[in-house]
């Protein structure tokens, strides 16, 4: 109940947290294995496609800023073909859908990112914020409430683990 009562306040912080374009790429667990295909293929394989993905995401962000969402999404999709298991790429896609007010899709994409995100707290926090906002916009209050709880929990853990960052 307390959470529900404090929801308006929380939403302000949520909306601010998830609204703006993502300025920097959240730290991704750079997993050597995510993007490389064959096992044990040397150091070159570790950065396979990462630069291509970053280049695509940069271009996508520029288009997104101009409101060209469909083209931005097409670029993010290309990035996903290169690194399908990079949760940040999924998160970008979710961000575009959020801006397009396609909330159901935004939520699903954020959930997909979450399923790949592992224990990375900040990324999880960003994703739960997106999910909370999507649910809120769709009028899924109960769902939004659950997402807000996740956000609060994550914020607390981030404070505990790295107080210097805040």
């Amino acid at each position: 109940m307390t959470v529900i009562r404090s929801m308006p306040l929380l939403f302000v912080s949520l909306l601010f947290g998830a609204c703006g374009p993502v300025r920097e790429m959240p730290r991704v667990p750079v997993d050597d294995r995510t993007s490389t295909s064959a096992a044990g293929s040397g150091p070159a394989a570790a950065v396979t496609g990462r630069r291509a993905v970053l280049a695509l995401l940069r271009r996508a962000q520029a288009l997104q800023a101009q409101g060209k969402y469909a083209r931005a999404a097409a670029l993010v999709e290309r990035a996903l073909r290169i690194e399908p298991e990079n949760p940040v790429v999924w998160q970008r896609m979710a961000g575009i859908r959020l801006q397009q007010a396609r909330y159901r899709q935004a939520e699903s994409l954020a959930m997909r990112a979450l399923s790949l995100a592992g224990p990375e707290l900040r990324l999880r926090l960003t994703l739960w914020r997106m999910i909370a906002r999507s649910r809120y916009q769709r009028g899924d209050w109960r769902g939004a409430d659950r997402a807000v709880r996740e956000v609060v929990g994550l914020q607390r853990r981030i404070h505990q683990t790295a107080p210097a960052n805040r």
């Binding site: 070159a44 496609g49 291509a52």
Partner: peptide, 8 residues
């Protein structure tokens, strides 16, 4: 076809 360094 999309090519990038490291692609199999």
């Amino acid at each position: 076809l999309e090519l990038y360094p490291g692609k199999a």
